[in-house]
Amino acid sequence: MRAVRHIALNVFRESIRDRVPYNLVLFAVLLIGSSFLLAQLTAGQDVKIIKDLSLAAASIFGLFIAIFIGIGLVSKEVERRSIYSLLAKPISRPQFIAGKYAGLVLTLAVNVAVMTVAMYAVLGYLTWIESPDFKASWEAPGPDPALLKAMFLIFIELMLVTALALFFSTFSSPLLSAALTFGLYVAGNFNTELRNFEHVVDSPAAAWGARVLYHVLPDLSAFDVKTQVVHGFPVAAGYLWSTAAYGAAYIAALLLAAMYIFSRRDFK
């Protein structure tokens, strides 16, 4: 367990040294800049747009980190052969995978947390300066606590994408892993379409195939509650927890498969 922790902390340190936190600066600039511009352009809807923008940015920036660093986690070590001296230490390969994964999840957690704080800060400011008339037209309060639900599911989704990237990078080239992970990210987001397929097609074989895909592919569309939250629709706590549990089970499956493959691999 201690080895896993040390490896994880080293991944975190690597992401700091590789200037990953710069994306937070970009995020802040985007948020503050657009809130400044939007305040002049839209009538009272700037709070909604800021919410949309910050949730989307947290999701997309996180996606880039999850895919690009996630893929490098293992493949870079193997390619540059830094793994040789590491695995000669008393560490098992599953511990190595677990540590790498935990490290990137830590990076993502810090990233999402800082973004959340920045979002609430901007929303709080906008609410403070806005006139009560405008506030009456809002569907949801400015610094709405429900936004945390969306951020929470975004974080779980990013964890899942990281696990996907790690899984693919244990057996395929970085470029292919990136393509596969991104492909599954897109496919996973179209998952609801797959589920509705049986209403659209006549062929039972196609409907059955779509159903199987719906269950086997990561159901990423389930993690997207951005629109509901921004429009002030309720998101049930049960939905939140069952989706998070789904994510956890899926991640566990991916990590176990990654460990299995990685434990048998030759480093030529």
């Binding site: 080293n10 690597e14 040294r17 052969r81 040789y84 001296s85 000669a88």
Partner: peptide, 14 residues
């Protein structure tokens, strides 16, 4: 045991 790989490479950010 200790092991020195051939042409070793270590994390260059450390």
């Amino acid at each position: 045991i200790g092991y020195l790989p051939e042409n070793p490479y270590f994390y260059d950010y450390l």
